[in-house]
């Protein structure tokens, strides 16, 4: 839970960087990229094992996008699929025995999503994406549907949602992973080797559920931003 913080001095401003998050994030990105390269290397009409698995994963994204986004939904697949695959890989990395690698300054390697900076960055990417897509689909009507009292109140509520949606996205993912790690360490203090095991199996379930929730909410936000009515 402790981070390995490196302080960068940039023109008089001290910028602290969580280096352990950066290393584990690169590792998760490398796993996703290598999986992508291996899955698309020898594509054939009769799929092999790896191609069948990756095709069923892609069918999952296509199916959810088809049901929740109305028009031109296939173009959102790159963002949604890479968010889901990265979050799943990152969450599952927390169950690897990475803590046996001792870092200096008391830091420890764990899942990169136990750092709120990473989840907040992903939530802001989602915010920018759906606002951009909404403006491209509806123009200025994205902000103000109709010039009436109800329309102005709705516009203000949606302006507030632009702040609360990324906040809840970021805190939900971060707090689930962080609470899981604290739960495992408390169970480790209670009865080592036996008590953490069921909790770690539960954390594997949580990793998939939280990645699905993040993806579903992203799709729902894109759908409500580009759809005809709210």
């Amino acid at each position: 839970m402790e981070h390995w913080i490196y302080t960068l001095n940039l023109g008089g401003h001290a910028i602290s960087i969580n280096l352990d998050t950066i290393f584990t994030m690169w590792f998760a990105m490398a796993v996703v990229i290598i999986f992508g390269i291996l899955a698309t290397r020898n594509l054939s009409l009769v799929p092999g094992k790896l191609q069948a698995v990756s095709e069923s994963i892609m069918k999952f994204f296509y199916g959810t996008l088809d049901t929740m986004v109305e028009n031109d939904n296939r173009k959102h697949v790159p963002l949604v699929a890479s968010l889901f695959l990265f979050i799943v890989t990152a969450n599952l990395m927390g169950q690897l025995p990475l803590r046996i690698i001792h870092l200096k300054n008391g830091g420890e390697l764990a899942s990169p999503t136990n750092d709120i900076n990473l989840t907040a960055a992903m939530a802001i990417i989602v915010l920018i994406y759906y606002v951009f897509m909404g403006i491209r689909a509806k123009g200025p009507k994205f902000f103000l549907h109709e010039l009436s009292f109800t329309g102005i109140v709705m516009a203000l509520v949606e302006l507030l949602e632009m702040f609360t949606r990324p906040l809840s996205l970021a805190i939900r993912l971060f707090a689930n992973i962080f609470a899981g790690e604290i739960l495992v360490s408390i169970a480790l203090g209670g009865l080592a080797y036996f008590l953490p095991l069921p909790i770690m199996l539960f954390e594997i379930l949580v990793a998939f559920i939280q990645a699905t929730v993040f993806m579903m909410l992203t799709i729902a936000y894109i759908g409500s931003a580009t759809g005809e009515e709210h």
């Binding site: 971060f174 707090a175 689930n176 559920i209």
Partner: peptide, 16 residues
């Protein structure tokens, strides 16, 4: 599972 995860998140805000 989706709904349970969404309502569980409220407890995790309190946890933070």
């Amino acid at each position: 599972l989706l709904g349970a995860a969404l309502s569980e998140a409220c407890a995790l805000y309190a946890f933070v």
